[in-house]
Design a protein around this nucleic acid. Structure first.
Lengths: 238, 238
DNA sequence: TAGTGGTCTAGACCACTAT
DNA sequence: TAGTGGTCTAGACCACTAG
């Protein structure tokens, strides 16, 4: 819709009107009136259908709400399901500082499970990244991430970022879809050592397959200390 | 948009066109062409803007996709985040039969926590329903649900349903929004007895606050056997 | 009664795609 | 070159809301 079909300097009229109205109403309280359609027709000297096209977009976006016979008003913001975030942002939400210690970061050949999950062929190159993740200095989680090397060229060489999700963002690969599985279990001896808990103590296992559009960008398995971590999920939308 | 502003027998033209096109393309493979706009203009004898209004609705819905210069095509179905379902449907997804034994079902006065979660005042009447939930005959989960009695008049008297979510559905209270928290823990002695596991064994705790529009319809705490249950969540949308 | 959004017309020109 | 969707015009009548 927003693609430039008119590559000259001029801005589409319905876009002008749309952005003008958006600037007027952003920050306004829900229920505040937006300009009427005929008012905008006079202000911009355009046809009413053009104004309606502009307003339609804002209504679909959930910014405005039309009430026949009354007018157009700022809508109550829609609730939206949980955004897909990584450990760093998840901790930041809790007011905690995320830190990581890389335990392993190397190129591997994809095994059958990882290959299927990443939509690759067995033996293809994948990045395996294992980290102990801390929150405010305390061990929180042990994470094994498998990444498609083709999507992250030079990733291992260019120095690892703190936040994998920031790296996705920088490459235009922000996850838009995630399939998570969550279960309770007992810590293995190795997990217990890293997490500084008793072997056999309760842990939360969290697996994720994250996609950006059609591309699988992350397959990971994480194990969290159950005494420090509760997962929050919001589902649905208005 | 679909409200009847024309209460006489006639159907809005853009609705006629929209439903005609919908009937044509439902079942078609993604990428199949839809009729062109000018073709529909001739078929229905309407203005092009009317056809565009019809098609716009289907595009917003995600059923169609426009490609400038080429035409309008059936879109790849959008992925949608997890629907909000209860235990019965959650088990059905796994091919398991859900059964329940009611351990407690009574009217109570809301304590401070439940009152806040249900958007009520402390002391208001709530329904407290505790069930042992089985899947294919095996203990799976122990659930405490708190419900707003005002939204479910006669619920306790009229015989309890198998599925709470079916009861919501029947009253037009299908949950559209859920706030879940998930954690790992160890079974208490009482929980262990009901679930037939060792005291201190690993369990998954799942709390939910479910809303239908603005109304809080359910507040619940469930504890699952970790050896039989893994939670699946899909997040995001195309 | 005046104003609002909802529907609808009968055209027009544009940029883009495919042949 | 023919066809497609994208933009835009300058009106019209309708049902509904509010003063």
């Amino acid at each position: 819709m927003d693609k430039l079909l008119v590559p000259d300097g001029r801005t589409l009229k319905h876009v002008q009107v749309r952005e003008y109205v958006r600037s007027l109403v952003t920050g306004s309280a829900p229920g505040s009136p937006a300009p009427s359609e005929r008012e905008l027709v006079h202000q911009f000297g355009v046809a009413r259908m053009t104004v309606r096209q502009a307003m339609d977009a804002l209504v679909v976006e959930g910014l405005l709400e039309r009430i026949p016979g009354r007018g157009t008003f700022v809508a109550r913001p829609r609730r939206a399901a949980s955004r897909i975030v990584g450990f760093t942002e998840e901790m930041a939400r809790r007011g905690l500082l995320a830190e990581s210690v890389t335990l392993l970061a190397r190129r591997e050949q994809a095994g059958p499970g990882v290959a299927r999950a990443l939509n690759l062929t067995e033996g293809d190159a994948v990045i395996h990244w294992r980290r102990l993740r801390r929150a405010d200095g305390q061990p929180m989680c042990l994470e094994d991430a498998y990444l498609n090397e083709v999507l992250l060229p030079g990733f291992l060489q260019s120095g690892m970022p703190t936040s994998l999700y920031d790296a996705f963002e920088a490459r235009g690969l922000r996850p838009t879809w995630a399939e998570d599985s969550i279960s309770a279990d007992q810590a293995s001896a190795e997990e217990a050592q890293h997490l500084e808990v008793e072997t056999g103590g309760p842990v939360l296992r969290h697996s994720r397959r994250a996609l950006s559009g059609e591309k699988v960008v992350e397959v990971s398995r994480s194990v969290y200390r159950s005494d420090r971590f509760t997962l929050w999920v919001q589902l649905g939308s208005d």
